[in-house]
Simulated assay, not measured.
Amino acid sequence: MKDKVIVLILVIIMLLNFFDVITDISLGVPMWHVFSESLIVIVSGFGALLLVKDIRSRTLNTVRLKQELVVSDDKLRNISQEMKNARHAYSHVIHGQFEQWHLTLSEQEIAMLLLKGLSFKEISSVRNTKDKTVRQQASVIYSKANVEGRHEFAAWFLEDFMA
């Protein structure tokens, strides 16, 4: 908007000076004065043209960027859906492994909360149990999974993703 106002001002300056040059020529004003005002007309017109060209270029660029943004949003939605599908599939894999380890439903719930990164205190709060109960169940989970602790337990599920 500001650029369009500047273009309008330059065009007005150009037109006013153009009519002033014509008047000065008809009145016999010295040529150096006519030349200097003609130069103002030319520079104003050239500036207006450059500004119009720049506005047009930025407008086309904005349109292109908006189109790219729409395409990117579509790709992101598709990726998000792919991520949801992958998480769902991975969740099935995790639960399948829990069943191979013969974890009880309670142990499976705790194991999943451990994988999500919750502390024993947070898990006990979520499950309305004592902290000691969660610790004991976590020890049973680690034993059934044949791992030493929480970090090795989480790593068991992530190591295949690391190259």
Rank of each mutant, 00 (worst) to 15 (best):
K132R: 11
K132E: 07
K132A: 08
K132N: 06
K132T: 09
K132F: 01
K132Y: 05
K132C: 01
T133V: 10
T133G: 01
T133K: 02
T133R: 03
T133S: 12
T133H: 06
T133C: 01
T133L: 08
V134Y: 00
V134C: 02
V134F: 05
V134M: 02
V134S: 04
V134T: 14
V134G: 04
R135A: 03
R135F: 01
R135S: 07
R135P: 01
Q136G: 02
Q136K: 06
Q136D: 03
Q136I: 06
Q136A: 05
Q136L: 08
Q137C: 08
Q137D: 03
A138M: 09
A138F: 02
S139W: 02
S139D: 04
S139T: 01
V140Q: 07
V140D: 05
V140L: 05
I141G: 00
I141Y: 02
Y142Q: 01
Y142R: 03
Y142D: 01
S143T: 12
S143Q: 13
A145H: 06
A145K: 05
A145V: 14
N146V: 11
N146Q: 14
N146T: 09
N146G: 10
N146W: 02
N146L: 13
V147K: 05
V147D: 08
V147M: 05
V147N: 04
E148T: 07
E148S: 13
G149I: 06
G149W: 03
R150I: 13
H151Y: 11
H151V: 06
H151R: 11
H151I: 09
H151L: 13
E152Y: 02
E152P: 07
F153T: 02
F153G: 07
F153S: 01
F153V: 03
A154H: 03
A154F: 05
A155P: 00
A155D: 14
A155C: 07
A155G: 08
W156E: 11
W156Y: 15
W156D: 10
F157L: 07
F157Q: 11
F157W: 09
F157I: 10
F157C: 13
F157R: 10
L158D: 12
L158Y: 12
E159P: 03
E159D: 14
E159R: 14
E159V: 15
D160P: 08
D160I: 13
F161A: 15
F161Y: 14
M162A: 09
M162H: 05
M162D: 07
M162P: 00
M162C: 08
A163P: 13
A163H: 07
A163R: 09
A163D: 05
